[in-house]
Nucleic acid binder design. Structure first.
Lengths: 194, 194
DNA sequence: TTGCTAAACGGCGGGGGTCTCCGTATCGTA
DNA sequence: TACGATACGGAGACCCCCGCCGTTTAGCAA
């Protein structure tokens, strides 16, 4: 990679981070180019699409979270280890504007990227979940947990204190909103239609 | 309201419903105008902003859900009544494209509309929650439940079967992902807990 | 140092979207 | 029937994304 290309790449990444922190995941690429002092073509060359830019911007954060998970594998208090990690993920997703949406987007995108953030988090968290399986409701997977977390983060994005609120909701979901034993009568699909 | 205005209003609403079902909450207003055979100014006059259009399109649905809630107030099995309603809301939010995003948006918007969908749902659901309070974790509010549901709906939007997946996640959150609390008695392969 | 070439740059043009504004057509009534 | 209010429609300004291509420049080799 040529030196000027490296410079521009770094510059764009820095500007993008600011701009995304400011305006969320749908910050204007044009604007980013303008601030970085490069042409729009340059942005597009380094990051073919918005998702690529988001992925690059959030890569460090995601890797931190993955490391965070790996650090906790093998600890005796498996449940606490998992919960700590979930809280960390939640805090990041709720705090860092655009991250939740990026995670959500690439969970849906048909796995074109093997290295997409969600895949990484899933793989990193899987051992934690496995070793804490005894403390989890039957059928709960890492994927479920991450889906729930991104959902919560999306829903709390505009809250005054997103991280606190998101973690509170996550806490409720973990211990159960209405944790009563015995079979609950399962209603059919909504009669709300029409 | 003039007759032609009424006609156009109805026509726009119908087209918008289709278009939103097809393309989600960010369907093109221009496109809607085109299909409806009116100028873009007309759609803009009837619905000053996208949110107004979404609100109008989803009004019936939301009202159904509110009625659904009211029907269940006073029933002896308060917990089941609440859960049924939550499932209905979840199914709608997950199934009807754009609804979840609309709910999320106007929960965040600074309550400019007193009649916004979220407010309506909150008011309608509050009695259900109150009467089932004994079965809920302490501190859980209607607002929490609705936030969680819209989050789940957003996160499952692109799932092959959104309603099923959303309801499954909601179920997990209700009974608890990892309900190792003192008050919970869980059967199953308890590994002793923590 | 100088020359060369491939890589990187930047910006133009097309397509589309939102939003405002205003001349014009139409409705409903006097 | 004639008139005023109301609603219509589209043009214009602005922004954004995207593909493309002529131009510049970094880095290597002679």
């Amino acid at each position: 990679m040529r030196a000027d290309a490296q410079r521009n790449y770094a510059r764009l990444l820095a500007v993008a981070e600011e701009e995304i922190a400011l305006n969320g995941a749908d910050a204007s690429l044009e604007q980013i180019a303008r601030i970085a002092g490069v042409g729009s073509g340059t942005v597009r060359r380094h990051f073919p699409n918005r998702h690529a830019l988001l992925a690059a911007v959030f890569r460090d954060r995601v890797e931190n979270l993955c490391a965070h998970a790996r650090d906790r594998v093998g600890r005796p208090d498996t449940r606490a280890a998992l919960l700590e990690w979930l809280n960390a993920v939640t805090t990041s997703a709720a705090t860092i504007r655009g991250l939740a949406m990026a995670l959500n987007r690439d969970r849906t995108a048909d796995a074109e990227h093997e290295h997409c953030a969600t895949t990484q988090l899933t793989e990193a968290g899987e051992p934690l979940v496995r070793q804490a399986a005894g403390d989890l409701a039957p059928g709960v997977t890492v994927t479920d947990l991450l889906a729930l977390i991104t959902g919560i983060a999306l829903a709390t994005e505009d809250h005054p204190d997103p991280a606190a609120e998101a973690n509170r909701l996550l806490g409720l979901a973990i211990t159960g909103l209405s944790p009563v034993d015995g079979r609950i009568r399962r209603p059919g699909p909504a009669s709300g239609g029409s």
